[in-house]
Structures are given as C-alpha cells and as structure tokens.
Design a binder for these strands. Structure first.
Lengths: 224, 224
DNA sequence: TAGATTGTTAATCGATTAACAATC
DNA sequence: TAGATTGTTAATCGATTAACAATC
C-alpha cells in the first residue's frame, strides 16, 4: 500500500532511514520475526510516535495488533533507500582520506562502488590504491563522459574543491559527497552531501566545554 | 557584554558556529574590517535574522548602524568554540581511516592534537604513524590514567566500538569522536560526536533517487 | 541629525510528541 | 471476541523568519 506522489521527505527523516535499516538488519540476522514500534523505537532512541510517523510517509508497513514483520520492513526500507540498485562513484583527491575511503570495504557492500581515482600528483600515477590506478585529473571530464558515474567524491584540498565540483557537474554526476569545508555551488538538480571533519570536531569541543562548564556550576565553581 | 548563565545552546546553533568562524577567518585574512549581518548571512547561506539570533545567544558583539567588526567577532567566536585551549586526543583503531585522521594536519591547527594511537594488531606495533608509535590496546587504560586525554577517537571495527568506549569512559575522557555506526552507551556527562560514513552515503543515495524521481515526474515519465 | 543596522520581541513554520479511533 | 498496536489526526514544542523599536 504505497503512499501517493512522494512529497519531499524532511531531511531529519532521511537521516533516520539508514538507522532503521541497520537496526532491522541486526534484528533479522538474529532471526527476530516481529517487532512493534515501541520496542524498535526504544532500541534506536526515539519515540514510537516518531517511528510510525516516519514510516507512514512511505506507506503502511505494519499491522494493527501485531506490529511490523521484521524481514518485510527491512526489505521495504532497503527499497526506499535505493539499496536495490548500485551507485557508481569516482573519487578525486587521493590523499590519506581518499585512500582510506577507497579501501573502505563497507561502501561496496551497500551498492556504492568507487570505480576510478583521480589526482594531480604525478607521483601517484604509478601507484595502485585498492586495486585501482590513480589517473590524472585532466582525464576526469573524459572519464565522466564515457562512464557516467552517479556520484563524485571530493577529498581534495580546499582550494580545488569547487573547480573539481564544476568538472564533476559538467561530467553529469547527480550527487557529490564532499569532505571539504567549502560550501559548493552546484546546480539545484545536483545533490551535495557534506562531511566536515573539522566542524564536527569543533562542535564536539564546544559541547565538551559546555558540559564541563555545567559541571563546574554544579560543584559551585562557576567562573563569574 | 556577555549573556547570562549560558542556557543550553541548541544543537543546530552549535553546528553553525564553526561555519561562522571559518567565514570570518576568510574575511579577516582578506583584511575586511567590517561586515553586517545581511552580507555575512548571505555568504553562509542563512538569513540575517538567524545569524543575529544565534550570536545573541552568546552576547552582543555588533553595533547598531555599523554592523560587526570582523577581527573582534572572529576572536569572540573562537573563544566560544574553545579555540583558545587545546584538546588532547587518543585514537583507537589504526586502520585506513585511523591513519588518515592521524596524518590529517588540520586538527592540530585548531588545537586538537592526537597524542597516542592504540590497536590490537601486533603487526602495527612496529610501525609509526605520523610520528607516533602504535601501542597495544591493553595499555589504553593505563595511558588514560597518566595522561588524562580529553577526547577519544574510535575508528575500530563495529564489534569493539562499545568496549573501547567503555575503556575510554573509565579512563576519564570527556568526549568521544566516533566513526562507528554503533550508538554508544556512555554516561550522560560524556559527549559523543558521531560521524557515520555509510549513513551519510545512504542519505545521499536516497536524495539522489528522490531528485531523479522528481526529474522523471517533470519530464512526464513517472513510474506509476 | 538622518541612515543604517543591531538586539530582541512577535509570528510563522516545521518537526516531534501525544492521543485515539480504526482494525487486525 | 478482547487486547494489542497501528495509522493518523490533533497538540506541543522548538527553531526559523519577520518586524521593529532602540541606538550607534
């Protein structure tokens, strides 16, 4: 019983979908057949209301008085997430992080495969990362024309993130997974997902201080 | 003119603070002396209202009719983010990602320094990553007692993320920067910042499909 | 002073939570 | 059938945006 015309899904919901998928995978692997929203939500750390609200954006997968069938719900969420297809990716910037991502085995398992690597450093052209040759950046545009990758991964230095994004966009990728701090300018039909390590660390630093500040207040050692 | 007692800062605000800091750093480096909320907000891609609202959670840093003094605001936000201090970190799990993070030069620049590396793989004990020796995991607890690191970085396989977190918590870290998918159970005084690469990629995949679905609708090629 | 722009209050919007009728 | 639990509507909460008086 699919929902109508798929209105835009709120970003917070999108972020929870992989979490649901992982939890259900775990349950299914343990042979659990059936679960209700209260228990599943508790495992994830959200309310049952929110879980049901989220699922019902996509359809009605449960049954009153019974709950949800684990394997069935797992399949449905997999479909929603597009795990029934594969995404071809190219990676630009074969530094430490780029290499680590290339060698990361988990992406392929979920249907995200890195098909080609690009860099400007001629030293790297001889090397081989995770079984893939490193190609000159100059070949990126041509490669995209021929192979039509879905996603471009940007792990370059800041200064070239935007120009690389431009090449990828011209090359026709539909999505960019960027690890740079630069807010990329791309046409609105291109989706950008950003992972910003420094920002994440700075947020952590802030919250750390805040927590410690709170501790101090509790122990009566406020700074003011 | 500092704000009173620092109520809990909403997480969305915390996430924007590093963005403000970066943009101001850029402006300052170009020698810009003064900026108003409208222009700064436009650069970042938010509303002027939001920017002013955010800043005023921490104090009044601007001046009516003038705007904000760039170097001054930069310093203030640096203080808010705790960039006037350093955070000592230990990293557990010296795989591809762990090594990449260790060699990443930007963290140190912002006051986040990785002081020690731990792993279970005896092969690694001989190697040296970014000038640091890799120590046996068994030494982690002892190391924490002696050196009192602020933050523990977890880049281990999923299965050991929680046990490692437990050791770190016992060792007295105030924050954990985790790259695992496991939702870590820690006492509430310990702050966890999670970066989940697979989830991020799956979100991107979903949005990609959604965007492509929308395109199809536009061109009249809906699937139903 | 007049113009610009903040700090801050009020209005809107969206997401989360609560409640409950529908129904398996 | 009676009990359980969903799907869904209504209420609440929080964050964003708009508006404007204060003021440099």
């Amino acid at each position: 019983m699919k929902k109508n015309c798929m209105r835009a899904i709120p970003y917070p919901v999108i972020q929870r979908l992989p979490v649901y998928h992982r939890e259900l995978t775990e349950l299914a692997s343990r042979g659990v057949e059936r679960i209700n929203s209260a228990k599943l939500a508790a495992k994830i750390g959200i309310t049952a209301s929110q879980l049901r609200q989220d699922l019902n954006l996509f359809g009605s997968f449960g049954q009153q008085g019974y709950g949800y069938n684990v394997p069935l719900l797992l399949v449905e969420i997999g479909k929603i997430l597009g795990l029934d297809r594969t995404f071809e990716m190219v990676l630009v910037g074969v530094g430490n992080l780029g290499m680590a991502l290339t060698r990361h085995p988990h992406f392929r398992k979920r249907g995200f495969t890195i098909e080609a690597l690009f860099d400007v450093d001629a030293e790297l052209f001889r090397t081989d990362v995770g079984g893939l040759p490193v190609r000159p950046l100059a070949e990126l545009a041509g490669y995209c024309q021929v192979h039509q990758p879905d996603i471009g991964i940007i792990t370059t230095p800041e200064e070239v993130a935007q120009p690389v994004a431009d090449i990828l966009v011209k090359g026709g990728v539909s999505g960019i997974w960027s690890f740079s701090s630069t807010r990329l300018c791309v046409p609105e039909n291109v989706v950008v997902e950003n992972i910003n390590l420094i920002d994440s660390l700075m947020s952590l630093g802030f919250r750390l201080r805040q927590a410690q500040g709170a501790d101090e207040l509790q122990t009566g050692q406020s700074k003011r």
